[in-house]
Amino acid sequence: MAARPLLWLLPIALVLGTVYVIPVADVVRLSFSDATLLRPAESYGLSGYAAMLEARDLGVVLRNTVVFTVASVVGLQLAGLLVALLVARGDRRGLPGMTALRTIVLAAWVVPGVANGIIWQTLFSEAPFGAINSTLALIGLPRVAWLSDPEMAMVSAVLANVWQGTAFSMVVFYAARRAIDPRLYEAAEVDGARPFARFVYITLPQLKGAILVNTVLVTIQTLNTFDSILALTGGGPGRATEVLSLHIFNRVFYNYDLGGGSALALVLVAISTALTLVYIALLGRGRT
């Protein structure tokens, strides 16, 4: 029977074309236009990009983006790894409640970003009913300006993001941890390796692929996060927590600047793509 792959690929090509390629092409078109949310493009040119480079706030936004992303990625990896290893260990020892623990962690993941922002806004609230500050006060510690201090606001945004995204990292690491041949641990134990040595010499190297893959995915996810920050701080105080994706959202939906927003969105796509390529290169090197 002759292979006719094109025929079978057609449906998915149509779906992807409709859902992804056409909108992206349209964003490219809009980025070179003067379109706003209120009227379609009238002229085309590079003015959108020029304005973007001249914008004074772009530096601050990019700096915020870097801080938010790096801190989130590190936090997500550590928290995800920790929970995954705990759950895997609990599984091996047949401890009860491991499924419940996994479910609880996963529950954070299915909370919508906006709801996540609102939940943490309530927790971080500096009003007398703010859960975290009340608890701190209860044990005699000073209150913290979680959302009103520019630097603490960034910490809070990262915390909220890590809380929500840990589940994803955990799933990746949990699957990878379970795929490690248990014989390797037995061999290492017979070789005299203590638990910490087994973690360093067996677990970490064996998870290298998962760590790299997870870094790519989590970085891209974090770069695209704006909904929880929008609900938590709205990008403030001032521009203290305004990251690139939120900046794009603000520019398009508050300033109605569809052309400029599209240009920035393409910058975001370019950053994500570049990062992906870097990590793929790392991944390839990790194999040899």
């Binding site: 041949d181 014989r183 390797l184 037995e186 061999a187 290492a188 134990e189 017979v190 070789d191 005299g192 390796a193 203590r194 010499y201 067996i202 190297p205 064996q206 290298k208």
Partner: peptide, 29 residues
Amino acid sequence: GAADRDVAMVFQDYALYPHMSVARNMGFG
């Protein structure tokens, strides 16, 4: 525990550390 007994073991499926060179595998213990 296994780490505290002076024994060496050869496993059925060898259980070599896939991420280490032969020399490091042999020297690990």
